[in-house]
């Protein structure tokens, strides 16, 4: 069993986002980079399959700038066997279609029984790459999978459907799954893993020089949060607060 896990390097989730002077991209100076958390959930699913079956091989594939190897090494330190680094210094502004094409080319060449992606990268939050990748590879796809297991030539994938239902799918391999947070907490890259990762291979590929299919016209920060307001005092205010929570904030 060979599992490909697609990962993306994204700004740390607590980064203070600034727009670059061109008005169409993020200012990446002083950004701290991490592996997108949903990709870590996907990797953990793959590693647990590997824990139970020593013949399973877990390969990381990532479109990332040439200098960005720390996130790949982190995945290797968590327990992946090897990585494919598709070098592209514009990786962070690539549109989903171009990204999926680059990943699909590498996966087609390397071969895989199962392809896992995070349900989305926590930078642009688009969630397109997994499904586009399935389209490019002409494979079935289940999105937002909470848990999965291998059963013979099938993968059994569990996801949350509408209205709190639990849906369980059986999908013939090979297949593409996009993974969301489930019960499997991603493991730490421990010291032994970090030492082992130094010797694990990272295959380097040059990204095909394809043009993006879309361009970002404008990127803007959200408006400043409006000041708080007093809607009443004491017990009298409760019903109004409840109404606002329900109708305006939509949190109830």
């Amino acid at each position: 069993m060979k599992i490909m896990v697609c990962v993306k390097r994204v700004p740390a989730t607590d980064s203070r986002i600034k727009i670059a002077a061109d008005g169409t991209s993020l200012d990446t100076t002083s950004i701290e980079w991490i592996v997108s958390p949903y990709d870590e959930f996907a990797l953990e699913q793959a590693l647990q399959i590997k824990d139970a079956d020593a013949d399973t091989e877990v390969v990381i594939v990532s479109l990332a700038p040439a200098a960005a190897t720390k996130e790949l090494r982190t995945c290797l330190a968590m327990g992946a066997d090897s990585a494919i680094h598709i070098k592209d210094d514009q990786a962070n502004t690539r549109d989903a279609f171009t990204t999926a094409s680059a990943l699909a080319d590498a996966i087609r060449d390397a071969g895989a029984d199962l392809i896992l992606c995070g349900k989305m990268a926590v930078d642009h939050d688009q969630g397109q790459v997994g499904t586009l990748l399935a389209y490019k590879l002409d494979l079935p796809c289940v999105t937002e999978v909470r848990d999965l297991k291998i059963d013979g030539n099938e993968v059994i994938a569990e996801r949350a459907g509408g209205g709190g239902t639990k849906e369980t799918y059986a999908v013939p391999l090979p297949a593409v799954l996009t993974v969301t947070k489930g019960d499997k907490e991603p493991r730490y890259a421990n010291l032994k893993g970090i030492m082992k990762a130094k010797k694990k291979p990272i295959e380097e590929l040059e990204a095909a020089a394809g043009a993006d299919h879309m361009t970002v016209k404008v990127m803007e920060l959200p408006p400043e949060r409006p000041a708080g307001r007093i809607v009443g005092e004491g017990v009298d205010a409760v019903s109004e607060v409840m109404r606002l929570l329900r109708e305006e904030a939509k949190v109830l």
Binding site: A12, T13, D14, P37, E40, F41, V122, R187, A189
Partner: peptide
């Protein structure tokens, strides 16, 4: 592990 979703961010930046 860096699996910190925004809502549970406990990150420390030295």
């Amino acid at each position: 592990m860096t699996s910190i979703l925004p809502e549970t961010s406990t990150t420390f930046r030295g």
